[in-house]
């Protein structure tokens, strides 16, 4: 294994599942030395996969250089390259994978393909010290309630249609809210919701452990369009209903598994209202509430690097001929032997 003169090993992590291209250097003992990022911002509407991939290809060199520079680590001091192998948008994933393969071959170091969802969970655990949590992973592309049981992160509940982040984004666009550079739509909805007072009646859809947000989205948009409430009231009601649904299912998973922690991770984890609701159930079930820090909440290279390090340490690498991306790679398909080692 290559080591630099301080005797430490480093992993380069590359994330490119959706609109973000991220690169980070993380040391094998879990220090995030850099976490560079460049996000593709569509001129209008949602993410166009091919346009996003083109953006990633354009910024890759710059973001990678920044990751090395900030970390003050030279490419030749890297001992491992990790990349997000799925799930995500095919063209975007392939861009990151291509960069990762090229670098690993050039530097002659092992390559590890990381599941994006595992990345979010592991970086949340790293940053908060959570050992064995029930995780609520909420972002623009995913809504998953998961806990570790027998070698794998099992999915206890998930959305049956759209992700919560997507629900908030599409709602915001449909009612004409303006996105500010750097601020996701979710943050704008959150701000408006603070001024809401009236609860507008919206569908609350929990099916056992699974959730549905598409009907809620349609109802929220039409409530606003038919003047059933001010924009503040509708934002408030949308958040109340959507987050109550998420909290209800998370609580049910917590009651069922009796895990000692609740971990909130993913881009929507930044929402204070959702955090406060989860705090309530964590306290009720004597669990510790942990939330991923803001800088590691959205998609980032550090989470990929760290999950790659964990996999590598338990003997997992991805040979080049097995490094094709998997756009539908489910969380529970990932064999995760390192978690048992962490729990010992």
């Amino acid at each position: 294994m290559t080591t630099n003169n301080s005797g430490c090993s480093y992993c380069l992590g590359i994330e490119s599942t959706a609109d973000d291209f991220g690169a980070a250097v993380v040391s094998f003992d879990g220090k995030v030395l850099s976490n560079a990022n460049d996000a593709y911002t569509p001129k209008k509407g949602g993410i166009h996969p091919r346009e996003a991939a083109r953006h990633h290809a354009e910024v890759a060199e710059k973001v990678l250089a920044e990751a090395f520079e900030t970390a003050a680590v030279k490419p030749r001091d890297i001992s491992l390259v990790a990349f997000a192998q799925g799930p995500g948008l095919g063209p975007c994933l392939r861009t990151g994978a291509t960069a990762a393969r090229a670098l690993a071959s050039y530097l002659d170091v092992p390559l590890v393909g990381v599941n994006h969802c595992v990345g979010h969970i592991e970086v949340g655990k790293l940053a908060t010290g959570a050992k064995d949590p029930v995780t609520l992973y909420v972002s623009g592309g995913n809504t998953i309630i998961s806990a570790f049981e027998a070698h794998r992160y099992r999915i206890f509940g998930e959305t049956l249609d759209i992700a919560i982040g997507n629900c908030l984004d599409v709602f915001a666009r449909a009612v004409g809210l303006q996105q500010k550079k750097g601020a996701p739509f979710g943050a704008i909805v959150e701000q408006l919701a603070l001024k809401g007072e009236k609860l507008v009646s919206l569908p609350y859809t929990v099916k056992g452990m699974d959730l549905s947000f598409s009907g809620l989205l349609t109802a929220a948009v039409s409530a606003f369009q038919s003047n059933n409430g001010s924009i503040e009231d509708v934002c408030y009601s949308l958040q109340e209903v959507a987050f109550s649904m998420l909290t209800e299912v998370t609580e049910r998973a917590l009651a069922h598994t009796e895990k000692p922690e609740v971990l909130l991770t993913g881009g929507v984890a930044a929402n204070k209202k959702l955090q406060s609701m989860l705090t309530v159930i964590a306290e009720e079930h004597d669990a510790r509430f942990c939330v991923v820090p803001l800088k590691l909440a959205a998609d980032n290279g550090a989470m990929i690097a760290w999950a790659g390090i964990l996999a590598y340490k338990s003997g997992i690498t991805t040979p080049l001929d097995k490094s094709y991306v998997d756009v539908k790679w489910r969380l529970e398909e990932v064999y995760a032997p390192w978690v048992e080692a962490q729990l010992c």
């Binding site: 799925g86 799930p87 959305t159 049956l160 998997d326």
Partner: peptide, 10 residues
């Protein structure tokens, strides 16, 4: 069909 509808089911 429902299984495939889930976003990331092989």
């Amino acid at each position: 069909e429902i299984e495939k509808r889930g976003r990331y089911v092989a």
